[in-house]
């Protein structure tokens, strides 16, 4: 029990006027130093909320209602705001989805980098600047010196995402949580950013939680996968095994729908129906209305995540 990060039975609820709704329902996973994990699922499955819950930055009216988040030997889910701040951007960094919206438009890149370092370390501006330059070089930004005095709107989307990665590296964190880091970028830039993230994590021995709906990306970059559906982790295991021998019917459907996993000329598979909204989750297994294998038990009893085969954990009655 010496994982870098251990999330156990995490439950996140949103307090609405009509009552609380559950966005994440008992998610558990671990991350070791330097390990890269993919958090996969459709929009609204709870991937991003899981990411934000780790650094306790869920948008209101969301809150962690149950479960534990163990990080570097401490239970951080109950940390005070002041103690939590010392983890955010310092031990655990985040990369957001849209680099065009993430940087503050009225401050220079240098300002936004230096303030981050000075928030966590007692160092001078000049020292912080030197570290910022070093990190900009690490993410292969051309003429980093010049970038420090530039404003976000003077840079392209890909460049901005590199800068955000550089910001996330500033304090040498143990974990980077990347929330769909390439969704807003061109396909060519996407590959570059992903390669960069993978390289940095390997070189700096950083853990990575990659939140995405793109199974292709996950299979290239990560070592293990957690697949989320309607707020639950329904399959969890080594990337290799999950991609080639998935267990849960939902994961099978997801992988079947990727172009390139199927013989050319054949139709791509589709999962019929839509993921239920959080206010309208069916009883039993949330996937049962869309599942080919669904039997009576699936509508009555909620399956638990348990070891199935090849080291994969899955939540399914039929396997």
């Amino acid at each position: 029990m010496s994982h870098l990060l251990e999330v156990r039975d995490l439950e996140v609820k949103f307090a609405l006027r009509s009552g609380d709704i559950t966005a994440i329902d008992g998610a558990s996973f671990t991350l070791d130093p330097g390990e890269r994990m993919g958090l996969v699922g459709e929009s609204g499955a709870g991937k991003s909320v899981t990411g934000f819950a780790i650094i306790n930055l869920i948008s209101k009216p969301g809150f962690i209602s149950r479960g534990s988040i163990h990080f570097e030997g401490n239970e951080i889910s109950a940390y005070s705001p002041a103690r939590m701040r010392r983890i955010r951007g310092n031990r655990i960094s985040m990369i957001f989805q849209d680099p065009m919206m993430t940087l503050n438009p009225v401050y220079t890149i240098g300002f936004q980098m230096i303030e981050t370092l000075q928030a966590h370390r007692n160092i001078s501006k000049a020292q912080a600047r030197a570290i910022a330059l070093d990190k900009l070089q690490k993410v292969y930004i051309p003429s980093p010196e010049k970038r420090l005095s530039q404003y976000p709107h003077e840079l392209s989307g890909g460049m901005r995402q590199r800068i955000i990665i550089a910001i996330s590296l500033l304090a040498d964190p143990a974990i980077i949580i990347a929330d769909e880091p390439t969704t807003a970028l061109d396909v060519t830039i996407q590959a570059e950013i992903m390669d960069l993230l993978q390289e940095l994590c390997e070189n700096e021995k950083m853990g990575l939680i990659l939140i995405t709906h793109d199974l292709g990306v996950v299979s290239q970059v990560t070592e293990k996968i957690a697949v989320m559906y309607a707020g639950k982790i329904i399959e969890y295991g080594p990337t290799e095994t999950v991609v080639h021998h998935p267990v849960h019917p939902y994961t099978i459907g997801l992988i079947g729908s990727i172009p390139g996993t199927i013989e050319p000329g054949k139709d791509l598979k589709q999962i019929p129906g839509m993921m239920p909204t959080l206010t309208n989750i069916p009883p039993g297994c949330a996937f049962n209305p869309r599942c080919e294998l669904a039997a009576e038990i699936c509508t009555q009893k909620t399956p638990v995540l348990e070891e199935k085969q090849n080291g994969i954990m899955a939540a399914c009655h039929m396997k």
Partner: peptide, 23 residues
């Protein structure tokens, strides 16, 4: 988003509100 990012960087409320949001 940039305010949420400012929080994620671990800045103090004072700094997020009076430096990032205020300007």
């Amino acid at each position: 988003e940039y305010i949420k990012y400012a929080w994620a960087k671990g800045l103090s409320p004072r700094r997020v509100w009076l430096v990032h949001a205020f300007k």
